[in-house]
Design a protein around this nucleic acid. Structure first.
Lengths: 112, 112
DNA sequence: TTTGATACATCATAATTCTATGTATATTCG
DNA sequence: CGAATATACATAGAATTATGATGTATCAAA
């Protein structure tokens, strides 16, 4: 696990990217997927993920529909039109930022 | 400029890296250097930089000595032994994090 | 002489994630 | 069957950290 502050500002981009690739996912699924993808290095906590999904929904980036698996509810989130558009800007900013960081901190490496 | 949250957690690593390369720098110099290096994309604000330097000093990563240029004081910061050691871990963590992020968000690129 | 650059500082605010806690259902294993 | 674990959501308070606003003061250049 990384020092917690590093993740700041990247969570929205990560969620946007996953939903862009998967069409619909529920919260628990997202957290499991991220854990797998990163070999356990990024572990989204409940207290981070669910409020983030709610905020993104309030901001109009996401929408969801509930499905019942037996008696248990799942909220399947998906990108809205707005989310699809803003995803591009979010990821572009993140990519640019990562490139900039690399230039400062690891100048011996080729920038991505 | 990036959305401010992106910078979180990276400022300490950036400062450690610059001081590792330059032996001693003062605050204003650091902010100018970062601005130049990044083509203005990262602009450390006074209200971010000076408290960060103070905190890192309190944490034992940095030390400084004052020099007078005319009547104006400059605080030249430099890495302590502890700072030199921890710099390695900080940068390694950052590098690993960037690599992990890339794998999630830009899987089509080769990881760095 | 006045503007902008240099050089430091602090405080209240904002934004975001985490910890802790809670509720409840489903599955697996001894 | 019963207990432990996994699934699935949620919220509230705490912690962290960068920012904006503001302040002080010196120096160089126009």
């Amino acid at each position: 696990m990384y020092s917690k502050e590093l993740l700041k500002g990247t969570l929205t981009a990560i969620i946007l990217k996953l939903l862009a690739d998967h069409e619909k996912m529920y919260g628990y699924e997202i957290s499991q997927h991220v854990k797998e993808l990163t070999g356990g290095k990024i572990h989204l906590k409940d207290g981070s993920l669910y409020p983030a999904l709610q905020k993104m929904t309030a901001d109009g980036l996401l929408s969801y529909k509930e499905e019942y698996i037996g008696k248990r509810v799942r909220k399947y989130y998906f990108l809205t039109k707005k989310g699809q558009k803003e995803k591009i800007a979010y990821l572009e900013e993140l990519r640019d930022f990562i490139g900039t960081l690399n230039k400062i901190v690891f100048p011996q490496l080729k920038s991505i």
